[in-house]
Structures are given as structure tokens and as C-alpha cells.
């Protein structure tokens, strides 16, 4: 008996539509984030992460509206990320019904922003998203750095030190994405997941690279993650959330079923 490891499906949303492709046989409008969120909710998702990848400012109103609709129909925690740059953005998303917001590049530009956000809204709703990439050569002691702009721009910041700094500023959770693994289906980068999970007090969500159900188990057992996030294995109907949880339970992990 204890705390369950969480499975978090992630919706990447552009202009109000889920992108990265989604295939649900029984959903007519496959790209509608509200329908998809409801589907995952029924399948037993523990949380939903909504990543707004819309570039333009005008389309952000669509996001607020979509978050409102999801929050009024799905009664599990909802995290919203993408474009969170100032306190007003956080307030807007929380008022729309988000439970947590995920801060990424705004934290890199101004780490104190995370402190202000945690002070204002409480650590429980401040997630810091970290995009990490391995910078050490094979054979060297493993080292990872923070990258921005979808993994294109190095910052020179050590990922483990950064995670610790962010929790010191008040981040209540870390969403860790391996830019080396994202989209590869080769599994999480277990090294960086383990290093950060051991270094911080707060829960860590592993992200990037899930291609099969065993990867979810590995993320928890070997990476030490408290929660695992995936998109495409669920979107393409390869596995349901329930199948993923049954597999995790067979492998000895506590899940909510």
C-alpha cells in the first residue's frame, strides 16, 4: 500500500488541435484535445499534460478556452505548459482550470521567475520543465546540459545542478525531457532521470523516448521517476493507459487501476 506511480499522457496542441498525430478508432474528431483528454480520463490516466506549442500570441486565447473545456469535463489533475512567461500567464491558466503550470524557457531566462511564481501561487502548482541533452563523450563521466529552442540551443547549464536550483526556488515538480530520446522510441534516458531524481526532493516526471510499455517500467525502476509521460504510444492507439498500468503492475509497481 502506498503512493501509485503516475502515467501522464501528453497532448501537444497547436492552434487548438492535438498534433503529433492521434488515432482513436472511436473518436470521429481525432485532433480535438477535449475529446482526447476525456478518452484518456476514461482509460484511467492519472493526470493530463497539455503542451501549447502555438507560436502566435492570438492563438493563446484558443488554449485558454480549450483548458476551460477540459477542466469542466475531466476531474483529474491538469498541467498546462508552453508560453508561460509571466505571472499573468499563470493566473490565466489556473483560472481556466489548470492545476499546475509548466515553466520552461522563462525559467532559463530568469530563474527568479520560478521563485516569484511559487511564492505567489504555491509550489504545488509550479512544474519546471527541463530539456536535457547529453554533452559528455562516450566513456567520460556522464553530463547533461539544458537546451532551449527544441533542443537546438545549448545554454551551458548543467542539468542536475539546474534541477536542484529550480527546486530551491520553489518548483514543486520536475518534468524532465531527454532531447536525445524525444521521438526516438528508444526509451527514456535513464542516466539523467536517475541523476536528477536522486538529486532533488520533489517528484520527477520522466519524458521523451517511450516506445513500449517496458520503457515506462524502466523509467520508474531504473530512472527513479515518480511519474512517466508519453504521447505517441497512446495517441496512435498502440496501447491504452489501462494496458500500460496492467503491465506496470505485473512488473511490481503500484498503480491506480
Amino acid at each position: 500500500m502506498g503512493l501509485a506511480k503516475r502515467i501522464i499522457p501528453c497532448l501537444d496542441v497547436d492552434k487548438g488541435r492535438v498534433v503529433k498525430g492521434v488515432q482513436f478508432v472511436d473518436i470521429r474528431d481525432a485532433g480535438d484535445p477535449v475529446e482526447i483528454a476525456k478518452k484518456y480520463n476514461e482509460q484511467g490516466a492519472d493526470e493530463i499534460t497539455f503542451l501549447d506549442i502555438t507560436a502566435s500570441h492570438e492563438d493563446r486565447d484558443t488554449t485558454v478556452h480549450t483548458v476551460e473545456k477540459i477542466a469542466s469535463e475531466v476531474f483529474i489533475p491538469l498541467t498546462v505548459g508552453g508560453g508561460i512567461r509571466e505571472l499573468a500567464d499563470i493566473r490565466k491558466m489556473l483560472n481556466a482550470g489548470a492545476d499546475k503550470v509548466s515553466i520552461n524557457s522563462a525559467a532559463v531566462h530568469n530563474p527568479a521567475f520560478v521563485g516569484e511564481a511559487a511564492e505567489k501561487f504555491g509550489s504545488q502548482c509550479i512544474v519546471v520543465a527541463i530539456d536535457a541533452k547529453r554533452v559528455s563523450a562516450p566513456g567520460e563521466t556522464a553530463r547533461w546540459e539544458i537546451f532551449t529552442h527544441d533542443g537546438r540551443k545549448p545554454t551551458g547549464i548543467d542539468a542536475v545542478e539546474w534541477a536542484v536550483l529550480m527546486t530551491n526556488y520553489g518548483a514543486g515538480e520536475i518534468l524532465l525531457t531527454s532531447m536525445d530520446r524525444d521521438g526516438t522510441k528508444d526509451g527514456f534516458d535513464l542516466g539523467v532521470t536517475r541523476a536528477i531524481s536522486d538529486a532533488v526532493q520533489v517528484p520527477v516526471i520522466a519524458s521523451g523516448g517511450v516506445g513500449c510499455l517496458q520503457h515506462l517500467v524502466d523509467g520508474v525502476k531504473q530512472g527513479g521517476a515518480d511519474a512517466v509521460l508519453a504521447a505517441s504510444i497512446f495517441h496512435f492507439g498502440q496501447y491504452s493507459i489501462e494496458e500500460a498500468k496492467l503491465h506496470m503492475r505485473r512488473e511490481g509497481l503500484e498503480v491506480r487501476l
Binding site: 504545488q124 536522486d198 520533489v202 517528484p203 520527477v204 515518480d226
Partner: peptide, 16 residues
């Protein structure tokens, strides 16, 4: 060998 690591604070998630 079931790696259950140090318990995190906050207590966040689904518990019985």
C-alpha cells in the same frame, strides 16, 4: 531490488 527510491515531498499523486 524493486527500486523504490527516497520518498519525495510533496506527497503528490494517488494514494489509498
Amino acid at each position: 531490488q524493486e527500486v523504490q527510491d527516497h520518498l519525495k515531498v510533496p506527497h503528490m499523486g494517488w494514494n489509498q
